[in-house]
Design a binder for these strands. Structure first.
Lengths: 111, 111
DNA sequence: TTGATTTATTGCAATATTACGATAAATGAA
DNA sequence: TTCATTTATCGTAATATTGCAATAAATCAA
């Protein structure tokens, strides 16, 4: 990503950026939406639901897991991936607060 | 970013990924938070509030604008940047719906 | 017009991301 | 143990991102 100067920003800002970055790809959005759509989280068939090769999907899953957006349990030969509720909640709170902040503002000056 | 196969995902998935990607950098998070924190949107001093050189900030602003997260009006020598309310609302709705979906789920099977 | 101020663009080096073939590792079944 | 199945890792090519110095462009003031 080039030489991101992360040390110059707050921990909270870096964490939120990392969380959003983990979701900032259509394949990872699709994975999360698929996990949200299935009722149980036995998810050995994620690869079949995505238009990407298995190593690519595995890499995206790894990124989502590293960011704490999903979690995975070994389940025999398969692996069971599920949404990590807390991560989604964090983003929901962040955008809800931001949306509230903007509504309470007086923006009539120029825009 | 390598060769993202965007054509294989839905328009909605690509749009959400693009919106999140635009925010997925601490500098851009910081810019949006700064714009949220000032009451009027006369914002010629964004550069002074960020630990980055002026061309770098300008580039981040361009990205945010291209994604529709902020809008800018020429205001004499300065430029007035403001939050685009609709973009934030989109993300808020997306995560609120996702969070609701996960709460209504039966995840007891394995995670 | 000239100069000062502010923002945008260009060009480039350093690094990160994406995708996938090949292959490895892990597990259960026979 | 051997085989089949599933997921992870490695290696690599193609492309994208980040940051900044240098410079351009735009606007206002004098």
């Amino acid at each position: 990503m080039g030489v991101s100067k992360t040390e110059n920003f707050s921990k909270r800002q870096n964490e939120m950026a990392a969380l959003l970055k983990a979701l900032a790809h259509p394949a990872r959005i699709a994975i999360v939406e698929y996990l949200l759509s299935v009722d149980t989280c036995i998810c050995g068939d994620i690869v079949d639901h995505l238009p990407l090769a298995q190593p690519t999907v595995s890499q995206h899953l790894k990124e989502l897991k590293a960011a704490g957006i999903i979690k995975g349990n070994v389940e025999g030969t398969a692996i069971c991936y599920c949404i990590e509720e807390k991560a989604l909640a964090k983003m929901q709170v962040y955008f809800t607060q931001s949306a509230e902040k903007i509504k309470s503002k007086n923006q009539s000056k120029c825009c």
